[in-house]
Design a protein around this nucleic acid. Structure first.
Length: 401
RNA sequence: GGAGAGGUUCCCGAGUGGUCAAAGGGAACAGACUGUAAAUCUGUCAGCGAAGCUUUCGAAGGUUCAAAUCCUUCCCUCUCCA
């Protein structure tokens, strides 16, 4: 087990804020003295969306705790999932069935376990404790808080101020999340900085139940590949755990140069000293492309291994730098020949509608075996193995059938 | 309960009877350019074998030659008063 100073240094690495720090110090000291591991909490709502590398920033922190001998507790928010975290932009959601919750959370955990240590992870469902509360209990809890306390939450305040709807069920979200901390005796709760209110609210809840208070460890929010907004599904700027190695590689390469160091710091396992060196290289004028390639390799290797990362790099170079064809292209079996080009593009799902297909042709985005198509009325004779390309990234190999 | 404001295409938002498939911005997509899928510039951005037609402006009815725009009812949100 690492000693006190080492643990503290590792915990502080790459965090935005630790509140309150002195309590954390006490907890770590006590844990070392008693040999009792700390319970480190992180909550997810099993809504079925993909986990992306932005979510994994606090998860990586949890893994570090696990490596120090502590316990990671993942809360499956099967109750809060019905509400939707008001912190995000998400609206209220339709209720999830039990099967969906189980299916989603299994899928979720599969993604988290690319980072976490299975043996030191505890998975808990909110329904374990919330199914036991009745209305009176809930009224009782509510009686301890005032509206003003909730309006301290920036998201609530903002929405209230600009006249957006603010639903009662959303107000209960911090209470539920805080009660989780009570139920599992959390020592520490991890989250992105936007979770600050909810996590600190957990302390209030613990106080109410005479529990030891948790410490909030907040990670920075990872920006999306667009470079301006936080990584998230709504902006389609995320790198998902389930993305293929080539997709991950390509997406990393698409980030603006200004984000390179940010990603090195929060999305890789590269050693801080090494990162410092990379930073110097970047400043000294090394072509950022090479540094970004290294970044892309690092990120891809985390999920697919080094060999796969190198393959993804080769593929990227071939397709984008040299504009050659990718090694693997999906085939499309076509039984009609000759076939109207527009119909072919929509049937093969290269274009969403025939209007879009026409547009693509008009814009010169469609080619067959590298020959640009300009005639919307083309009746194409299907040739086995002919490659149709739409834009830069959509390819299909024709097959007579 | 009373008074007022509002619900517009993926998102924000303009539009108060025909010139509206609906300004502008964002997102997205394509083309050019590039070390990259960045930035920048240009273009596209409901559907239809494309002529014209069909569907779209909270929902359902109605008025009109013509409705996002007017009327009726309903649903939803916000503000103020109590």
């Amino acid at each position: 087990m690492l000693n006190f100073a080492e643990q503290l240094k590792l915990i502080k690495k790459g965090t935005e804020e630790i509140t309150p720090l002195d309590e954390l110090i006490k907890k770590v000291e006590k844990s070392i003295k008693t040999g009792k591991p700390l319970r480190v909490k992180y909550g997810i709502d099993p809504t079925g969306s993909d986990v992306h590398i932005g979510h994994l920033v606090p998860i990586r922190k949890m893994r570090e705790f696990q490596d120090m001998g502590h316990i990671g507790v993942i809360i499956i928010g099967d109750t809060t999932a019905q509400i939707g975290d008001p912190t995000g932009r998400d609206e209220s959601r339709p209720p999830l069935s039990k099967e969906q919750v189980i299916q989603n959370s299994e899928r979720y955990m599969e993604q988290l376990f690319t980072v976490l240590d299975r043996d030191k992870t505890e998975i808990r469902y909110q329904s374990e404790w919330f199914s036991k509360l009745n209305l009176l209990d809930i009224i009782n809890i509510f009686s301890n808080f005032t509206l003003a306390q909730f309006m301290a939450h920036d998201t609530f305040r903002k929405r209230f101020d600009d006249g957006s709807p603010l639903f009662m069920n959303e107000m209960i979200y911090p209470i539920l999340q805080g009660y989780d901390s009570v139920a599992i005796d959390a020592d520490i709760e991890l989250g992105a900085t936007e979770q600050k209110f909810n996590i600190l609210f957990g302390r209030d809840m613990q106080k109410l139940y005479n529990k030891e208070l948790q410490v909030a460890i907040l990670s920075p929010i990872l920006l999306g590949t667009c470079g301006t907004r936080k990584m998230g599904k709504s902006f389609n700027n995320y790198i998902a755990v389930f993305d293929t190695s080539t997709d991950k590689y390509g997406k990393v390469m698409s980030i603006p140069d200004s984000l390179i160091m940010n990603y090195f710091n929060y999305a890789t396992k590269v050693d801080p000293d090494e990162i410092e060196k990379i930073k110097e290289e970047l400043v000294s004028g090394v072509n950022p492309k090479f540094i970004k390639q290294r970044l892309a390799r690092e990120i891809v290797s985390l999920y697919h291994g080094e060999e796969e990362a190198l393959k993804a790099e080769e593929e990227f170079n071939r397709v984008f730098s040299q504009k050659e064809l990718p090694t693997e292209i999906d085939s499309y079996l076509c039984s009609e020949s000759p076939i109207w080009i527009i119909k072919l593009l929509t049937d093969a799902k290269l274009c969403a509608s025939s209007s879009e297909a026409r547009r693509m042709i008009k814009q010169g985005a469609v080619s067959i075996d590298n020959a640009k198509i300009s005639d919307e009325n083309l009746q194409l004779d299907i040739e086995d193995g002919a490659i149709i390309k739409v834009g830069k990234r959509r390819f299909i190999k024709l097959q007579r059938g």
